[in-house]
Nucleic acid binder design. Structure first.
Lengths: 232, 232
DNA sequence: TTCATAGTTATCGTATACGATTTCGTACTT
DNA sequence: AAGTACGAAATCGTATACGATAACTATGAA
């Protein structure tokens, strides 16, 4: 587990089924996205079409298309006759993204809850345990990845792929902000791990959808609150 | 009021501010989107790049880019070496879209509620009154447009543009299904108008966010339920 | 020294061209 | 008559080329 770049799963798995060589625009999309999510291209980074095209070894047209797609996902900003830059670390954007995530993650969790079996719960617990260990060794990068894994386990049988897609977009958006000021408010991580366990117990106990949704939403919202409290 | 095509408002208004002539890919995007939303291109319609390019009077590259953008919004399906078609009327997709809409509309309404003033409430009531009249004259197309207007008034000061964007995407998605089997379950429209009034009263009365969110969510969900009950 | 302006460079935007892939029709075989 | 294989047409995918726009720089005047 612990894959970092989370993609529009539906699209990508469909593409994988066809034994087709990936189109170059597809490749360019994946490549640039990966660089943004990994942090090679940090926010504000100037994405020059010709340069990227040369790097990847093909022409500008597919690259252009890829950039446009990333723009639609909010990962890059594209200005006419000026060019593309990796989307910024505007605190307001962070707030919007986190708030939206709290809503869609809450919904995704509530919808998935009735479909989660005990095996998945056990796996989620194992991931959460790993997260605890990360805290001891202070490994924030892995912690974040595991956090996504934890929720991914819960979302495995999410009955609505659209909502799942929105979750993934949010995650990617946040990933592009890596190593910005928006991470690791002291103490929040510990609390987060505790909330995970509480969430699992709610699911195990067959709590009603509304309770689970509120808990999951609050889980994300608390991280946002923790950040906000540090700045004010 | 009563504009039909709802766009990523942030992007479009920004583009409007620059006195720039719209780029051709932008024009192509708007044009094709409009045709889909208006119903000129119905689901399943084959979008041949060269043909569209000729119609619009420019080359295929910008058209291609536009189609890709529409793909990202879910309005068209693009298959490699085969081409683009207007996204289909799969009942499952309808369910996904409506369910997602119920969630994001619910959230958008709850977030907006505290910011809605009495003038806006009055305007919303006026729109709702028009909707009643539409029911008498049986004008479903206008009814749908007014329905969007009603909610748009409520969302005018929505503090989170991301969520608003998701709402708009959902609306566009549904619009592309116009004149499909997914509309106008008998009696549902009347109920919808009543629910609008109830929603306004909740907002006026300063109901708490949770109550408003549930009401708004249920309002959309009920339409979905009405559809589902007709098929089973 | 600072500001305005003109010219240069970098970069984007789009058209055209051609190769690759798919689809569809037709002829041939069983 | 039905199915298969082959070939032609349609369509997509990408490269290259060139025009348009904006950013930058240098030069001159106040």
């Amino acid at each position: 587990m612990t894959e970092t770049a989370v993609g529009s799963s539906a699209v990508e798995s469909a593409a994988a089924l066809k034994a087709h060589p990936e189109s170059k625009s597809q490749q360019a999309y994946a490549a640039v996205k990966a660089r943004i999510v990994e942090g090679t291209y940090t926010p504000g980074y100037r994405l020059v079409l010709a340069k990227i095209a040369e790097d990847l070894g093909f022409s500008v047209v597919p690259v252009r298309e890829a950039i446009r797609r990333l723009e639609a996902e909010g990962l890059v900003k594209f200005e006419r006759n000026v060019g593309a830059t990796v989307s910024g670390i505007d605190p307001t954007e962070y707030l919007y993204t986190m708030q939206t995530l709290s809503i869609v993650e809450g919904a995704a969790t509530a919808l998935s809850a009735p479909l989660i079996d005990s095996i998945a719960i056990a796996r989620a617990r194992a991931v959460n345990q790993e997260m605890r260990e990360c805290l001891e060794h202070f490994d924030p990068v892995r912690f974040t990845a595991l956090n996504q894994d934890f929720h991914s386990v819960l979302f495995e049988h999410c009955p609505n792929p659209h909502i799942l897609d929105l979750v993934h977009r949010g995650w990617n958006r946040l990933a592009s902000l890596r190593s910005s000021t928006f991470r690791f408010v002291p103490g929040r991580a510990q609390e987060s791990v505790r909330e995970h366990e509480a969430l699992l117990q709610l699911i195990e106990g067959g709590a009603d959808a509304d309770t689970i949704e509120k808990a999951a939403r609050q889980h994300r919202a608390a991280t946002l609150d923790a950040y906000l409290s540090t700045t004010n």
